[in-house]
Amino acid sequence: MSALICGSFAFDTIMVFHDRFRNHILPDKVHILNVAFHVPDLRREFGGCAGNIAYNLKLLGGDPLPMGTVGEDFGPYAEWMDAQGIPRTHVTTVEGTYTAQAFITTDMDDNQITAFHPGAMDHAHRNRVEDASGVTIGMVSPDGRDGMLEHAAQFAEAGIPFIFDPGQGLPLFGGEELTRFIDLATWVCVNDYEAELLQERTGLSPHEMAERLQALIITRGAKGSEIYLPEHRIDIPPAPARELLDPTGCGDAYRGGLLYGLMHDLDWETTGRIAALMGAIKIEHHGTQNHRIDRAGFEARYHEAFGRNLCW
């Protein structure tokens, strides 16, 4: 029983500027902007939505099968995946390209300037859902535009239930395309900002979307999350974090928990709480794939957070 997770793999290069951008960017000179920031702190992390979601699902004991396109520089990431026991069966190397890369500079006010190079990600459509076997559930997460469109259609044609998770790829699509994604998908998962954009572009309210789905899941950060079912809404409380170190990748951690619950036919109350706790554990660590959990520790944190035992 595998989850085919279609999406991006990326290297995230994160730099810290020990000052404030506003002290060095003159508002009346932005038309001739030419600045350089000294960044003594730098780290390179393994990221991308498919990689992050697969990592979190694997931590929970699930069976992820990530699918994506990468560049000729993917070697260190491949070694990391092998060490974590995450299969690379459907990770395709595109010759003459780099793996997708984000270059993020953060200042002391937590403002960020990001440059993103899609690289091999734009070739995601080369992979096809039917190439994978033993798949019981799928996910279409941010990826190359053509890949997202084709993978959603392929999941539907194969009769494989899947989550549509547009993420930062949502602006790539118009209202008709997003409505079609909703009609093809079994579940949709977005954050609160994406939910607003999705409503604006499709003209559908959350309840109207839920009527076309088995569930619409909207995450709201520290406010928890909401699961809209065709008949009613379930409010999932946030899980308290012990430290707030790095929110990057919390949404992917949540989605890893969501997949685990769906794969094991858990009720929505439990599934939502597992997902929320995964997000809280992630935010306590820098980077998107540096947190660790074991079953006993997760069960203890679950009881601590929600006052109930975890039956999974």
Rank of each mutant, 00 (worst) to 15 (best):
M1C: 10
L4E: 01
V16I: 12
F17W: 11
H18R: 15
F21I: 01
L26Y: 10
P27F: 08
N34W: 04
H38T: 12
R44V: 14
L59N: 10
G71W: 05
F74E: 13
G75P: 04
A78R: 15
T89H: 07
T92M: 13
G96A: 03
T105M: 06
D109P: 03
N111G: 01
I113P: 00
P118S: 14
A120R: 10
A120Y: 09
A120S: 10
A120D: 05
E130F: 14
A132Q: 02
G134N: 10
G144Y: 09
G147H: 09
H151V: 05
E157C: 04
D165W: 06
G169E: 07
L170S: 11
L172V: 00
F173I: 03
G175Y: 05
L178Q: 08
T186L: 07
V188R: 07
N191Y: 04
N191L: 03
P206R: 09
A210G: 11
G221I: 07
L229E: 08
R233T: 15
I236S: 04
D246H: 05
T248G: 00
G249K: 06
D252N: 00
H264A: 05
W268S: 06
T271F: 04
A276I: 04
Q289P: 02
E299C: 03
R301F: 06
E304N: 09
E304Q: 14
R308L: 13
N309M: 06
C311M: 09
W312T: 14
